[in-house]
Design a protein around this nucleic acid. Structure first.
Lengths: 208, 208
DNA sequence: AAAAAATGACAGACCCGCCAGTTTTCCTTG
DNA sequence: CAAGGAAAACTGGCGGGTCTGTCATTTTTT
């Protein structure tokens, strides 16, 4: 029977959840392998039977949450490439949005860790920023596409993407950090409206 | 003569600039006092004649950039409290904006460090987040005030503030990290327009 | 020569990754 | 089904390394 396999998988998971809590509590850098092992209830040496080092642990941990998100991004791009009308592309955006929301809801701690460590130097930070910039590029392409179809006013896509991603980033981060503000779905709609109206081409309404 | 004093001040500055480069290059946590001292050309023991520890060094370093910004915030709040018409409050906002831009232009590295370390756990991160949330609160009040005067549509000020600050945050961060995009003044205007039109009350323009 | 500044060795504390020795699990065989 | 042995899993001490903050001593300034 796979009793051995099961135990191994379980212990791996124990180490990962222990690490997740410690990383969130004191940061990746400040957490020692000793602490992770102790928290998971094993000796230091045992850790090395499951992971090469702290970095491999982190990648496994956060990758479990990020990989699905990146996959969703890739799929959305593929769907958009073959989309013929705005109905189909709208569906692709819809699908992407719900995938991303689902990922965040499923791995809130890992995503929070992603936000926390993102700006740190070193290989971990670089790895996270690579993932991050994929989203930036996607949004930039989206803005560019909408601009070319005349649906929004002319604006530097790279600039708009940073603003949009930055706003969402901060909102999600605040929410994951424990700040409460209403129904996420309603918040999402507010974001769309906020940027939607800010991006649409229209005469400048001068409020005195 | 103040020769001694001068040298002391200069050495302090040397230590700070050395630390700034190292913090930006490898992060606060990964930088040792040994490295800072070596980079500044002094022995490790000398460091402790100028700063209590690494944390005091960081606070001094980043505080030099943040304090003026916080001061500008406090002054703007005071000016808004006594402002009677929207001309005066507009001037206060204008003044605040130019102060903040000036601070960023004067201490770009320190501000970048502020963005970098902001989400890390520990006393340093908490200290930075305290400063950060002052800006959040200010913007939230601003949105609330504009809403009460009917200049923008009804929207949760806390939510709008996070979106606005998040977008600006990301743009400034990208710019400080070396991403080029045109004239900062023009970018600022774009931000105002983006959010301005997104916040104004208006019939929902449904683009098919 | 007195005062101030600078130095670097030292003690104490962690941490990493390894690995020889121990314990647990599994499976075969009588 | 029990016994026993091989294999897998686990342990914790060790060597080697880094970092901190102090302080008696040396160097520089006045």
């Amino acid at each position: 029977m796979g009793r051995r396999e099961d135990n191994k998988a379980k212990k791996r998971a124990d180490l990962e959840t222990a690490a997740l809590q410690l990383f969130l509590g004191q940061g990746y850098h400040a957490t020692s392998i000793e602490q992770v092992a102790a928290e998971a209830g094993v000796a230091r040496g045992t850790f090395y039977l499951y992971f090469d080092d702290k970095e491999a642990l982190f990648r496994s941990l956060v990758g479990a949450a990020l990989d699905p998100a990146i996959d969703a991004l890739v799929e959305a791009r593929a769907a958009l490439d073959v989309a013929q009308d705005s109905l189909q592309s709208g569906a692709a955006y819809q699908e992407l949005g719900s995938s991303l929301v689902q990922t965040v809801m499923e791995y809130p701690e890992a995503i929070l860790l992603f936000y926390r460590e993102q700006r740190n130097p070193g290989p971990i930070g670089e790895w996270l920023r690579t993932r991050s910039s994929q989203l930036d590029s996607f949004v930039a392409d989206m803005v560019r596409s909408l601009g070319e179809r005349g649906l929004i006013r002319n604006i530097d896509p790279r600039f708009a993407a940073l603003a949009i991603v930055g706003a969402i980033d901060r909102l999600v981060y605040a929410w994951l950090s424990g700040n409460e503000f209403g129904d996420p779905a309603q918040v999402a709609q507010e974001v769309v409206r906020l940027f939607g109206e800010g991006l649409v081409d229209q005469p400048t309404t001068t409020a005195s």
